[in-house]
């Protein structure tokens, strides 16, 4: 029953998230509403961590395989990707470099300046 209950709670909150998506006219996936709702319910102790933890950790652990079907859909999108293959690669590679450097440097500067303030 433990896993059924845990999975049931996660599905219920997912379903409410999808309902939000249906009602609110913004291009935000239902999963995000569900995520925020779950976090709020945990913080307010409406849901206890133990009531969802095992099933949630299982779902997160197997998450990588959930991306395979969508990515294999590249087969059908190859004609759309092929003409922009090089621009796509350049955009992807360069932006990854820049974002990593900018985030790391920004975070380190703030952490160091605030630890100086404390001293």
């Amino acid at each position: 029953m433990k896993y059924l209950k845990e999975f049931g709670i996660i599905l219920l909150i997912t379903c409410i998230g999808e309902l939000f998506r249906f009602v609110i006219p913004l291009p935000i996936p239902g999963s995000i509403y569900g995520l925020v709702l779950m976090l709020v319910l945990l913080i307010t102790k409406v849901i206890k961590l133990e009531e969802v933890k095992s099933a949630a950790q299982f779902l997160i652990a197997i998450m990588p395989v959930m991306f395979i079907p969508a990515a294999a859909g590249l087969i059908n999108s190859w004609s759309e990707l092929q003409p922009i293959l090089i621009p796509a690669l350049v955009t992807t590679v360069v932006s990854t470099f820049i974002v990593m450097a900018v985030t790391g440097i920004t975070a380190q500067k703030i952490i160091r300046s605030s630890s100086k303030e404390e001293q």
């Binding site: 997160i60 959930m66 079907p69």
Partner: peptide
């Protein structure tokens, strides 16, 4: 498999 993605994303609230 894709169907599980929505509840799995909701589950990201737990480590957070």
């Amino acid at each position: 498999l894709s169907w599980l993605l929505t509840p799995a994303t909701v589950s990201l609230a737990i480590p957070l």
